[in-house]
Design a protein around this nucleic acid. Structure first.
Lengths: 210, 210
DNA sequence: TTCCACGTAGGACTTTGGGTCAACTCGACG
DNA sequence: CGTCGAGTTGACCCAAAGTCCTACGTGGAA
């Protein structure tokens, strides 16, 4: 059965295919949403709802690979499963290199489709978790003042308060204050936790002054 | 031109293909080594030399995909580029999902081959760097005594010496000694450095006792 | 102007971390 | 039996970090 809220977005300009895939997925407990053209899909696309896209490779208006590109360009991580009538190796390879989850040939087998969708769901969930974590860390980081942020970067570099003070042109006492407030705002109680938090947020340690 | 020591391993049971690819790669400055059968390649395979494999998909004795599997099974990270006469989409997709760098159809275009090899070389270099770092950390970790290792896991969990002492059933002084020796052996001078080192080595923090 | 956020800072402590010197136990190894 | 590595611990000491309270200047918002 499908995960809560997980939706499969079908994009195909052949209504018959749309219907048959929809029936298949519904039977498997998935929510589906059909689009008869890439444009309609793109303009209605909401990255915030969990799901994967199942896209026909050959469509009159916009090529499947271009749609994949457009999606990626828009910053979406939406997992994509391609469907194709008569497949062509170089296209399938390009699609896979560009990160497609799978590339299935019509008529698509029930099991193949399902295992691709399951995999896509896992990828989507993982990517959502990562983004969520990133965002939650980012939110807390945003509450830091400029000074606190500077101190943070020095602390995760393993520098002593007195060294940080010298770097920032102030005294140790002041650093202690910033440091304490920074730790409190971020909700961490040890340097170890702080380092992991900062690492996950992609913050690089301050360089010791030259 | 090829990187120092980087070798392309060609595996194909057609001598003509072997020759033509070899010529192409030599002209590009790559070292090449040819194998007329998957078995010969497998048994002579030395993961320690940098390089990538260029494998014909269809060979009499051992299928290209199986060879890929066998390589992976052996723990090798050797990047693989597949060549194939008449390609079949599902096979190419399987190969790509299993981590192939590229999947080219014969007759292979010079540029396609070269860009695949360049990409493979980058992947190989990156994987080697990562392994090297992993190993160097592992070497230092191996010099730790059991007790020091336990203390390490608690320290990177951000626990206080007195808490660690309680967990390990000893006193704070003893922990200080282990901790000092551990830091010295690992060559780190701050908890921040220690946490990063341990993270890269995949060491997980000790759980606080229940 | 008044209020507030922010950075600054000192004083007075307490708690932690880390190091020195010395010593004791225990099991393994020769 | 003696030696050695590993683990242990005590007494002391000092540096570093953390925590109170208090206080001041400044720049922007109300």
């Amino acid at each position: 059965m499908g995960d809560a809220g997980f939706t499969t977005f079908l994009v195909d300009d052949d209504p018959a295919v749309l219907r048959s895939i929809t029936r298949l997925l519904k039977a498997g407990g998935y929510k589906t949403k059909s689009f008869s053209s890439p444009q309609k899909f793109l303009s209605a696309h909401d990255p915030s709802v969990p799901g994967c896209a199942i896209i026909d490779l050959v469509m009159s208006e916009l090529d499947g690979l271009r749609l994949q590109e457009a999606l990626a360009q828009s910053g979406s991580q939406r997992p994509i499963i391609f469907l194709t009538g008569r497949g062509d190796v170089s296209t399938s390879v390009r699609a896979m290199k560009a990160g497609a989850v799978d590339f299935l040939t019509k008529p698509v087998k029930r099991d193949a489709l399902f295992s691709a969708v399951v995999h896509a769901a896992e990828l989507d969930a993982a990517s959502r978790r990562k983004r969520q974590e990133f965002k939650s860390i980012g939110d807390r980081l945003a509450t830091l003042t400029h000074r606190e942020r500077e101190v943070l970067e020095h602390v995760i570099a393993g520098r002593l308060n007195k060294q940080i003070a010298a770097s920032l042109g102030t005294v140790e006492k002041t650093i202690k204050v910033h440091r304490g407030r920074m730790m409190a705002k971020l909700g961490v109680r040890s340097v170890a936790e702080l380092v992991r938090l900062a690492d996950r947020a992609g913050i690089s340690p301050a360089r010791s002054d030259p």
